[in-house]
Nucleic acid binder design. Structure first.
Lengths: 234, 234
DNA sequence: GTCTATACTTGGATAGAC
DNA sequence: GTCTATCCAAGTATAGAC
């Protein structure tokens, strides 16, 4: 899948050495940590290199510039996120499909909170590197998935809502638990959110959304089965 | 209201000259623009000064450091945001109170999108300057407003949901239209969101939320009355 | 492919005349 | 209170030996 971030695949030769692959992976992991915590401009290549356990010059040997590293990191993050929304299919029941989408996105928020923040920071700052992706592949994917939603509406399976805004709302509700987790934790009187906070969060979001768009039957069983939490107030 | 950002009010003498006030205002406005578009680290004091129409040295005459300017800006933004959530009162009907909250927050998102982004960027980057505020005044305010929600629940006016997470969800749903407006506009195939996008957005969020938490009666009339849009699908 | 030393640039902050 | 010139720290990127 080409996400429109790199103009062509010929930028990098397909055949790469083992050492290169290993070091690039180390650098990318360190970069996710540093960029995720500090943001693009506050992050320094020296710190990324230090976290990756190598001198700064080595980092620049593998990634020509700081921006180069950042864009490749964005690309890997977007690829990961892509799959969660993509999985909406017309041969499923909306309750099952949507609750799975919510669950997948919140699970990603839990496992890779820093990746989510890098994406969020990029969008908040005007999406300077992602606009082509947003206007191209993402828009096309949302258009396609919106037709699935429209079909469910025609079949009377849910309220007549605007499908695109349904996605905007789902993205907002799920990503807030990663991007704004410090605010949420602070208000809850915790130091940070733990695994035990995310599962009920996913259930809360699922129930709100399903009930809010008029999917009444089936979701309770679905939510209860998928959740590790005992049935309890939203 | 002391939001816990400045240790004590004696930092600055209460009595200030007219010239100082005028120039500080110009700088703050320029700073909201520059910090909002570029983020704290990418923003430069030279650019803020230029937008304010003065040499860099003057800016530093009024604000000792870049961080100083940024924190004062954050303070003014938080004060503005504060009032939208604060307005929840127990002597109101939940439908009216919550739809007013959504409307107020989305209206702020429309009028001051850059202010919203500055706040969002601060939280996404770990809230280094706002943690005391989040753990103190904000937490206390949410606790207090949660008791209002609890009361509504006891009275059977809405579903038994977790009041704090209700706020988290409302914040996420409303702020996404400011913080992620570039993504939303891109997916909608627009260059940017206009006034005509925000009013129906507020209605969509209100309907989802009210229906989602079991407030069935009354919201249709409320939403229709407050909206400039003709009744139409969510 | 690795590493030390360093060149070069940007940007925050101030000195000191007016 | 204003402004020019400047200092200095930080950070990206590279040269060149190994």
């Amino acid at each position: 899948m080409n996400l429109g971030l790199t103009p062509n695949a010929a930028d990098r030769p397909p055949r790469r050495g083992r050492i290169r692959l290993k070091n690039e992976t180390r650098i990318m992991l360190a970069a996710e940590d540093v960029f995720g915590r500090l943001g693009y401009h506050a992050a320094t290549t020296a710190l990324v290199a230090q976290r990756a356990g190598m001198p700064k010059a080595n980092l620049h040997y593998y990634f020509k510039t700081k921006t180069d590293l950042y864009v490749k990191l964005l690309e890997s993050i977007v690829t990961m996120w892509w799959q969660a929304t993509e999985s909406i299919r017309s041969d499923e029941e909306p309750a099952a499909a949507l609750s799975r989408l919510v669950r997948a996105k919140i699970e990603l928020s839990r496992q890779r909170p820093l990746a989510s923040r890098i994406f969020a920071a990029e969008i908040v700052s005007g999406a300077p590197h992602l606009l082509p992706f947003l206007r191209g592949p993402l828009r096309a994917m949302v258009e396609e998935k919106s037709r699935v939603i429209e079909r469910w509406i025609e079949l009377g399976k849910m309220d007549r809502v605007d499908p695109k805004h349904l996605f905007f709302q789902l993205w907002a509700l799920t990503q807030t638990y990663a991007d704004f987790s410090d605010q949420i934790a602070a208000v809850l009187g915790k130091r940070r959110l733990t695994r035990q906070d995310y599962t009920p969060a996913a259930d809360r979001v699922t129930r709100l959304e399903l009930k809010g768009i008029g999917i009444g039957a089936g979701e309770r069983a679905t939510v209860a089965r998928r959740s590790a939490e005992p049935p309890h107030p939203v």
